[in-house]
Amino acid sequence: MRDLRVLEHHHDDDTAMTPPRLIILALSVLMVVGLALAALSFPAGDARLATLAMAALPQSGVLNPVTAVLLNYRGYDTLLEVAVLLLAILGIWAVAPQARIWIRRPDTPVLAAFVQLLLPLMVVVAGYLLWLGADEPGGAFQGGAVLGALGVLWVAAAVWLSNARRGNLLRPLLGIGLAAFITAAVALLLARGSLLEYPSGQAKTIILIIEGAALFSIGATLTLLFVGGFPRRSDAP
């Protein structure tokens, strides 16, 4: 956590209102007025899509309409999003060969012990959010965010990723969500001739399997975003 302790208040950016900035501000205000007029002219109460989404809910396998949209109606969209997560990490590894944060031993054992205590709790919460996501607000993204927060805490407390080998353990997790999604998509394509069209009755099982795999991928991705580079041990200050 030494990282965050050096943060100081600086007047390190010049944000004074200069004439060119005033012009930019005026142009932005003009744009806002135009966009506001456009926003006001949206057709009100046009809920055709909502009606369709709610009508098909009993066949979607889940009771939470948002999960139904994410994993069932627009499953291919979410598939591509999981691919985007993977690409973001690959992009970061390409531009930043070294981890942005220094991985070092914690100065105090209390932090490390606390984070280790949090681990099982947060894993349970993430799993619960995933399970809940079928019927109530929640799901793979929210659960994955909890796992990502856990990863950030672990990295910040230097419990985890203290060597590159453990960093390598995260790599299969990164890809598992996309792999499960693509496997399901291809299997369904071969079996039913249509991409991500779930057989009725098994929809919930398939959705939960995909979400479970995506949960780990999202958690690993968010953790590695925070690491901000290829995870390796650094002895530099």
């Binding site: 990282d3 944060i101 607000p137 993204f141 929210q142 975003l225 901000g228």
Partner: peptide, 27 residues
């Protein structure tokens, strides 16, 4: 509420952690 959960955890918490760690590296 689904969006609120994602926003609080990812949009605010994780983005904040990313920004703070970048700022500390630069400083």
């Amino acid at each position: 509420p689904d969006v609120a959960l994602a926003e609080a955890a990812v949009g605010s918490g994780l983005t904040g952690a990313l920004l703070l760690s970048t700022l500390s590296v630069m400083q």
